[in-house]
Design a protein around this nucleic acid. Structure first.
Lengths: 149, 149, 149
DNA sequence: ACCGTTCTAGAATATTCGCCA
DNA sequence: CTGGCGAATATTCTAGAACGG
């Protein structure tokens, strides 16, 4: 069971990799797999400046918002295990529905306008990279081979 | 004679600081002070990943082009001391005419259109930071106090 | 020499008190007294949750922006001692010109419109509290009685 | 009606990738 | 092949908007 490939890809690819990587403690799925939980202090030490070029946690939050993540739990605000953890959710980012990832878009003003007009919006390398990553994560999880040998 | 302040500022501010900083060997003025000479290998080791968030020299070149720098010497391609040095020049980036710095603009498509239409184009924090740096470099050079004590 | 009164007042009053309070290490004037330097980690431990109701540093930044503070140094060489310190400045928030405090306004959209139309904009309790605090700080500094006994 | 807090979006610069004359 | 550029994403700083006190 190979490692999830890295560190390339755009923001959704990186986030998908992080949340599915058992070696990453700062980002994880909530109990229902409908949203993600982020431990800020841990995230700053573990991820920022490494996988991302920024050291500012707020830049990471800006990316979450750009890709359509909203704060708050999926259903009835299921509590994070630690009160310090931030809860975000996105209709196209679900643990058990990786096929939805293809709908993720960077919500710039121009993309928003295009979508409302019914036009196509590209997502550079979304297809290839996300596909690779989701295959990896699905295969690995189904084989219950995590954590890595 | 104080050090040139850093590391803030936009690209022109950083470049002006680098080329005037005697501690930076990878970027320097050509003999006439009309263009800059860049030693790529040295630049990668000395500057990239530190003052800039990128490790790719080509990203730095992209910035040079965005701000209007062109390859080639000012007059008749006065030879770089080392054949490995790249020669770039910009009509508003001259060693002895810091007042021209105020005309530097990021040449995006929209900015290009605005300029052609005779409109104003902003340059965030260009004024303050460039002003700071040019004052420093002028004062320091005039006092011949470089390298720093 | 009495302590600066607290903890009441609106945001500018609190900030003026903090930056002039020698017991507060996380907020201080830059060398020229034209901008303020903020140590985030220290600020979170020292000030947040106490003087302000929030635990989010970003809320404090939002307040700074609402009242017209901008990131970056004022004019000349005012780099932070520690690169970790954030530098903000405001044309009406200067160490040696407390009379300018009266011009501070909460820059909401409506206030912005009013000011551009040349209308008056109120600032609740700005007058009274700021006046009290600036008197205190001036008196205290002039008597060189800091730090407090 | 104003202020403070929170979450999200706008806008400018920075970085990356790839095209093309 | 190369230099310059378009266009997409990434990072930074500031503003909009909603809500409660």
């Amino acid at each position: 069971c190979a490692r999830i490939p890295g560190p390339g890809g755009n923001f959704p690819a990186k986030l998908w990799r992080l949340v599915n990587d058992p070696h990453t403690d700062s980002v994880r799925w909530d109990q229902q797999g409908e949203g993600i939980l982020i431990d800020r202090a841990l995230f700053e030490a573990e991820v920022l400046g490494d996988l991302f070029k920024t050291n500012n946690f707020t830049s990471f939050i800006r990316q979450l918002n750009l890709y359509g993540f909203r704060k708050g739990g999926g259903r009835q605000d299921d509590e994070p295990d630690s009160p310090a953890e931030l809860h975000f959710q996105n209709p196209y980012f679900k643990r058990d529905k990786p096929e939805l990832l293809a709908h993720l878009r960077r919500m710039t003003r121009s993309n928003r306008a295009k979508l409302q007009a019914g036009l196509e919006v590209s997502c550079r390398r979304c297809g290839v990279l996300l596909h690779r990553h989701l295959i990896y994560s699905l295969v690995c999880r189904s084989q219950a081979c995590w954590p890595y040998p």
